[in-house]
Amino acid sequence: MHPRHLFPNIVKGQVSRASRINTDDIQFEQELDNLTGYFEQRGYGKNLVRNAIDESVWGLVNNAGISKWGEVEWNTVHDYKRVAEINLFGSIRTTLAFIPLIKKSKGRMVFMSSTNAIITPQCNSIYCVTKRGLEAFCDSLRIEMKKFGVIVCVVRPGDFTSATKILKKQTAEDIWSTFSEDVKQVYSKEYVDTYIKSIDMRLKRQSRDPDEVVSTVVKTLMISNPNAVWTVASVAETSLAFICSYFPYSVLVPLFYSLGGEKERRVLINQ
């Protein structure tokens, strides 16, 4: 089905993705203006969004997301708050704004999570915290919305880094220069560079087709009984998510320690 036909009938509340807006402290009216302008520029009827919203909103897709990597003590509370403002609170704000209309139409809400809500390796705590928090929010919301006939779903993609460009290319100097003096004394630039090389490898991989994720979102909106959680990931990622869900930490910590190259990295720490 062409998006021109899909949007008016189904995705009337797709604010987070379609409008390409930053949900940090933006008023609802401005969000609607941005969304309206986005679709008018692409040939949809004037005031389509506002007319649709005045009538009802059947589907809401929350897809705003940014990322920042680094070991915990490399970051600040501000870094955690900045990512959470978009990945977690952005979705919460949009949801609160649209709940009355979604309830009215007995529609559904779709949230873009990540396998990193389940797979939480070193050097990725900021992103993982927001995605796990988002899924916890959805778990509660799903139960609360059931009595109103509203369905809440989560789409959990694997690693689409090379396609989404969610990670920016940085040098070891870029990262190391932001450290406090105490942290610089512990972590050398060579240590940081091991992570840079790992990320560069991910960015150089052949891009996975993001249409797989988009198709899952559309299916979630269109079929009568969608799954509560959809995982769009490779066999390896799905297997690792299973291990992280059911195996004890006595297995997980050594596993990530080995897979993440911590043994080799340890010798680069200044102790």
Score class of each variant (00 low, 15 high):
172 A>H: 04
241 A>L: 07
147 K>Y: 02
235 V>K: 05
268 L>E: 02
115 T>H: 08
224 S>E: 14
230 W>D: 04
244 C>Q: 15
250 S>I: 11
144 E>Y: 05
82 R>D: 13
133 G>I: 01
175 I>V: 11
236 A>S: 14
206 Q>A: 12
217 V>R: 00
229 V>G: 05
20 R>I: 11
222 M>C: 02
38 Y>H: 12
247 F>P: 00
30 Q>D: 10
109 M>T: 03
78 H>A: 15
189 K>V: 02
24 D>P: 08
14 Q>P: 07
112 M>I: 11
264 E>T: 05
33 D>A: 13
104 K>H: 10
252 L>H: 00
199 I>T: 07
206 Q>D: 15
70 G>P: 11
116 N>S: 03
72 V>A: 11
200 D>Y: 06
23 T>F: 13
79 D>I: 06
85 E>G: 05
69 W>P: 13
25 D>Y: 10
177 S>T: 15
62 N>R: 09
49 V>Q: 03
269 I>V: 08
26 I>M: 12
63 N>V: 15
226 P>R: 02
26 I>N: 12
195 Y>Q: 03
70 G>T: 07
137 F>A: 00
89 F>L: 14
161 T>Q: 03
218 V>T: 14
111 F>I: 14
30 Q>P: 03
214 V>R: 10
195 Y>K: 02
47 N>C: 07
188 S>T: 07
206 Q>T: 08
114 S>W: 01
140 S>V: 15
185 Q>L: 14
6 L>S: 09
211 D>S: 11
40 E>L: 15
107 G>P: 09
237 E>Y: 06
112 M>S: 09
216 T>L: 10
141 L>H: 03
121 P>F: 04
112 M>F: 14
62 N>E: 04
48 L>W: 14
255 L>W: 03
216 T>D: 04
141 L>W: 05
248 P>M: 13
1 M>K: 13
248 P>I: 13
103 K>C: 02
207 S>V: 12
221 L>W: 11
194 T>C: 11
107 G>K: 09
243 I>N: 02
101 L>A: 06
152 V>K: 01
251 V>T: 14
66 I>S: 01
154 V>K: 01
120 T>C: 10
197 K>H: 06
111 F>K: 03
257 Y>C: 07
201 M>Y: 04
41 Q>E: 10
20 R>E: 09
85 E>D: 09
195 Y>T: 00
211 D>N: 15
171 T>M: 05
107 G>L: 15
183 V>D: 12
127 Y>A: 07
108 R>W: 15
45 G>I: 03
83 V>Y: 01
211 D>L: 13
71 E>C: 14
126 I>M: 05
139 D>A: 06
85 E>W: 01
23 T>R: 08
47 N>E: 14
253 V>H: 02
195 Y>P: 00
192 V>H: 00
149 G>F: 10
254 P>Y: 08
250 S>W: 12
47 N>D: 09
232 V>Q: 00
269 I>P: 00
37 G>F: 08
218 V>K: 13
63 N>P: 12
5 H>M: 08
226 P>W: 01
